[in-house]
């Protein structure tokens, strides 16, 4: 099982050598970008919890009715519900899975794990981080000192407790995680994929380096000249990136640092609906907000102008003194 998860180093190198890493324009439509995700793939998801979630890409992947995706993200929120509830994923690798601390347990996650036997593979938060980092470093594992002694470790035969060859201490080796494709949402990037992230970057840099392909959605596309004026702000280099889509409000109803906070009224009504009935409530939600709208903008219109504006007002206020 572990061998199946770990990609041989030569294949990882080959994957990169085959990618066109030239400084080339790679702007595509949301539909085209989401089609990089194929059935059965390992999909790494950027952001964390309700922050900078690549929701537009998840939305489109669900609309394209992909199957058997194995998804990984440091912490999942309603995105995890939607991936299980829509049937696109039966395996989620993460450290925490609920809609948000404000709403208690996710009935959707509980339904799919407890009765549908879908796999919520739990690692510690740092464990996920070290797995992406090892993937990004091109090594098969990294050592860490958390998870030892816990039942979280005992549930994970993929992780190996060892004695350090230098000191003899107990350490835990966690295997690299190299997703087939990473979905990441950023505040801005250029047409080549040089991506600038404001505020919290979570594990997105390691994730971008670890993945075999990276799809970016961005709040806006800026010129390459603008990127070059502040190269220290660029967090993901263009040659990691395979496709770029400009999607304003691409994390809605989650937040995007400095632009909008979570759209809590929408989140609350979502939670009430799916927790009341994780099967039919979810089906109705997906029908109304995911399958029926003709475009992402139509989805945003359903969330509503007032909610978008309120979220934007709160989002921008982070820069107020």
């Amino acid at each position: 099982m572990l061998e199946a998860q770990l990609e041989p180093y030569t294949r990882l190198r080959e994957n990169i050598s085959k990618r066109d890493r030239s400084l080339r324009e790679k702007v595509v439509s949301l539909e085209e970008a989401a089609s990089f995700v194929q059935d059965g793939m390992k999909v790494g998801i950027g952001g964390s919890t309700m922050s900078r979630t690549p929701m537009a890409l998840i939305w489109e992947v669900i609309r394209q009715r992909r199957k058997n995706l194995s998804c990984s993200r440091c912490i999942v929120s309603t995105d995890g519900d939607l991936l299980f509830g829509s049937g696109v994923s039966d395996h989620i690798i993460t450290s925490w899975f609920a809609q948000g601390i404000l709403w208690g347990l996710s009935k959707v996650m509980r339904h799919h794990v407890e009765t549908q036997k879908k796999n919520y593979e739990e690692w510690s938060h740092m464990g996920i981080g070290m797995r992406f980092r090892a993937g990004g470093m091109g090594v098969p594992f990294l050592p860490m000192r958390a998870m030892l002694g816990s039942d979280v470790m005992k549930q994970r035969p993929e992780a190996k407790p060892v004695n350090c060859p230098f000191t003899g201490e107990k350490l835990l080796l966690v295997p690299a995680l190299n997703p087939d494709v990473a979905l990441i949402h950023v505040q801005r990037c250029d047409q080549y994929g040089n991506a600038q992230i404001d505020g919290l970057q979570f594990m997105d840099i390691d994730l971008a380096l670890a993945a075999n392909r990276v799809i970016l959605t961005t709040e806006r596309i800026v010129s390459n000249d603008q990127i070059r004026r502040a190269p220290d702000q660029t967090k993901i280099p263009f040659f990691c990136v395979d496709a770029v889509v400009e999607v304003p409000y691409g994390s809605a109803p989650h937040e995007c640092f400095g632009l909008y906070e979570p759209m809590l009224k929408h989140m609350e009504s979502y939670v009430a609906q799916v927790n009341a009935d994780p099967v039919n409530g979810m089906r109705e939600y997906l029908e109304r907000y995911f399958y029926e709208p003709k475009s992402w903008n139509e989805y945003l219109a359903l969330i509503g102008m007032e909610e978008l504006l309120e979220a934007s007002q709160r989002g921008r206020s982070i820069y107020n003194d």
Partner: peptide
């Protein structure tokens, strides 16, 4: 903040960094 991963957590902070790095 509604979670420890929301922008409100960064108010008047000295530094923001990656989640793996803050755990390290």
């Amino acid at each position: 903040p509604p979670s420890t991963n929301d922008q409100r957590c960064t108010k008047r902070a000295n530094m923001v960094l990656g989640s793996a790095d803050v755990l390290l």
